[in-house]
Deep mutational scan, measured.
Amino acid sequence: ATNIVGKVKWYNSTKNAGFIEQDNGGKDVFVHKSAVDAAGLHSLEEGQDVIFDLEEKQGKAYAVNLRIK
């Protein structure tokens, strides 16, 4: 899926990971530091509006192509 709108639920820069809550009510999506880095960002803030694509690896959904809304 592409161009999904959501809000950062939480992001821990020590653990280099967090979750994004989908505005469409879907399951929360894992976001890794690699996606944050690829977006040219240093970190994510709780409640921040984002747009992202979903990629599945080994049955788990990940946020990729992250951008700030």
Rank of each mutant, 00 (worst) to 15 (best):
E46W: 12
V36H: 01
G47P: 01
A35N: 03
V36G: 01
A38M: 09
V64S: 06
A1G: 11
S43E: 10
I68F: 10
D37W: 14
A61R: 14
G25A: 06
K33H: 07
S34V: 08
S43I: 11
I51R: 04
S43V: 11
K33S: 09
G25D: 07
L54T: 05
L44A: 01
L41C: 06
G25W: 06
F19N: 02
K57H: 11
A39I: 07
Q58L: 12
G6Y: 01
V64I: 11
T14Y: 14
G40A: 05
D37R: 14
T2R: 13
G47N: 06
Q48T: 10
Q22W: 12
L54P: 00
L66G: 00
D49M: 15
K9S: 03
G6E: 01
F19Q: 07
V36D: 01
L41P: 02
F52E: 00
K60E: 07
A35R: 03
W10N: 04
F19W: 14
L66F: 01
V64R: 05
V64M: 05
S13C: 13
V31E: 00
V36Q: 01
G26E: 09
Y62M: 08
Q48P: 01
G18S: 01
A17Q: 14
E55G: 06
V29C: 04
I51C: 08
A38D: 08
N12S: 13
D53R: 02
Y11L: 10
A39R: 02
L41K: 03
Q58V: 08
A17F: 15
G26L: 09
K15T: 10
L66E: 01
Q58A: 13
G25Y: 07
G18Q: 01
D37C: 14
H32F: 08
T2Y: 14
E45Y: 15
G25V: 05
V36A: 03
D23S: 15
D53A: 03
N3R: 07
D23M: 15
G18H: 02
G6D: 00
A35D: 04
A61V: 15
D23A: 15
K33I: 07
T14I: 12
I68L: 13
G18Y: 07
H42W: 11
L41V: 08
V64C: 06
N16Y: 09
I51F: 06
Q58D: 14
L66A: 01
A17V: 15
H42T: 13
E46T: 15
G18M: 05
D28K: 09
G40E: 05
Q22D: 05
G40D: 05
G6A: 03
S43F: 12
K33A: 09
G40Y: 05
K27Y: 09
A1F: 12
F30I: 07
V5I: 12
Y11I: 07
L54Y: 06
A61T: 14
K27E: 10
T2P: 06
I68Y: 07
K60V: 10
F19M: 12
T14M: 13
K57L: 09
E45F: 15
N3F: 06
G40M: 07
F19R: 08
I4W: 06
F52Y: 06
I68R: 06
K60T: 08
Q58E: 13
G6Q: 01
D49N: 12
V5N: 13
V5G: 11
N16F: 10
A63I: 04
I4D: 02
E55R: 11
N65Y: 03
G59Y: 04
V8H: 00
H42S: 12
A35L: 03
D28L: 14
Q58P: 06
K60F: 12
I4R: 12
Q58I: 07
A39M: 07
I4G: 04
N65A: 04
F30W: 07
V64A: 06
T2F: 14
K15C: 12
T14A: 13
T2L: 12
I51L: 09
V8L: 04
A39W: 02
L44Q: 00
V64E: 03
I51D: 02
N16T: 07
G25I: 06
V8I: 10
N3P: 05
I51G: 02
D53N: 05
S13N: 11
I68Q: 06
I4H: 07
A38L: 09
T14W: 13
V50W: 01
F19S: 05
V64P: 01
E55V: 15
K60R: 14
F52Q: 00
W10R: 04
N65S: 04
I68S: 06
N16C: 13
K33W: 10
V5F: 13
G40I: 03
E55F: 14
V36W: 04
G59A: 04
I20T: 00
G26K: 10
H42E: 12
V50P: 00
K15Q: 10
V29N: 00
G18C: 04
K27P: 15
Y62F: 10
N3S: 08
S34Y: 09
S34A: 09
E21R: 15
E21Q: 14
L66N: 00
V36N: 02
E21A: 15
K33Y: 08
V31A: 02
G26T: 07
H42I: 12
N24C: 11
T14D: 11
N12T: 05
S13Q: 12
E55S: 09
N16S: 11
D49W: 15
E21S: 15
L66I: 13
V36Y: 02
S13M: 11
L44E: 00
Y62K: 07
G47D: 04
Q48Y: 06
T14F: 14
E55M: 14
I20G: 00
N3I: 03
T2H: 12
A1Q: 12
V5D: 08
L66Q: 00
V8R: 00
V5A: 13
L54Q: 04
K69E: 10
Q22R: 15
S43N: 12
G26N: 09
Y11H: 02
D49A: 15
L41F: 10
E21W: 10
D53Q: 04
K60N: 07
N3G: 11
K7N: 04
R67C: 05
S13A: 13
A61S: 13
Q22K: 08
N3Q: 07
Q58T: 08
Q58H: 14
F30Y: 11
K9G: 02
G18D: 00
G40K: 07
G40S: 06
G47H: 05
K69H: 12
V50F: 03
A63H: 01
K27D: 10
Y11F: 09
A17W: 15
H32W: 06
A61K: 14
L41I: 10
N12C: 11
I20Q: 01
K69P: 14
E46L: 12
V29K: 01
A17E: 10
H42Q: 12
K33Q: 11
I20D: 00
S43K: 12
T14K: 14
S13W: 10
W10E: 03
Q58N: 15
V50S: 00
Q48G: 04
V8C: 03
V29W: 04
A39Y: 02
K69S: 12
Q48K: 05
D23R: 15
K15M: 14
G18K: 01
I4C: 12
E56F: 15
K27H: 10
H42D: 12
K7R: 13
N65T: 03
E45S: 12
D28V: 10
V36K: 02
V31M: 04
H32S: 11
Q58S: 12
I51P: 00
V8P: 01
A39P: 01
D49H: 15
F19Y: 12
S34M: 10
F52N: 00
V31L: 07
Y11V: 09
R67A: 04
K15Y: 14
S13L: 11
I4M: 11
D37T: 14
S13I: 12
K9R: 09
L54M: 11
F19I: 12
Y62S: 07
Q22V: 14
A63S: 02
D37Y: 14
Y11G: 01
A17Y: 15
N12L: 08
N65G: 03
K60I: 10
K9W: 02
F30R: 05
I20F: 04
K60S: 06
E55W: 14
N16H: 13
E45Q: 13
Y11N: 02
N24G: 12
T14G: 11
I51Q: 05
K7W: 08
K33G: 11
N65Q: 04
E46Q: 15
D53F: 03
T2M: 12
E46C: 12
A38W: 06
K7Q: 05
Y62N: 05
F30M: 07
D53K: 02
S34L: 10
D37A: 12
E46F: 11
K57M: 10
I20C: 02
V64F: 05
V64K: 07
D28Y: 11
I20W: 00
N16W: 10
V36R: 02
N65V: 02
N65D: 02
K69L: 14
G6V: 02
A1V: 12
H42L: 13
L44T: 01
G47F: 04
A61D: 06
L41R: 05
A38P: 02
A17C: 15
A35E: 09
A63Y: 01
V29D: 00
V50C: 05
G40L: 05
N24I: 08
A63G: 03
A63R: 00
F52L: 02
D28A: 09
V31C: 02
T2G: 06
I68C: 07
G6H: 01
G59R: 04
A1C: 13
N24R: 10
A1M: 13
N3K: 05
R67L: 04
V8M: 03
V64G: 03
N3E: 07
Q22P: 15
Y11K: 02
E45N: 11
E45A: 12
V29L: 04
S43Q: 11
L41N: 02
R67G: 03
A63K: 01
W10Q: 03
F19D: 01
V50E: 00
A35H: 05
A61N: 10
S34F: 10
Y11M: 06
K57D: 08
G25K: 08
R67T: 05
L66C: 02
K9Q: 03
H32L: 07
S34H: 09
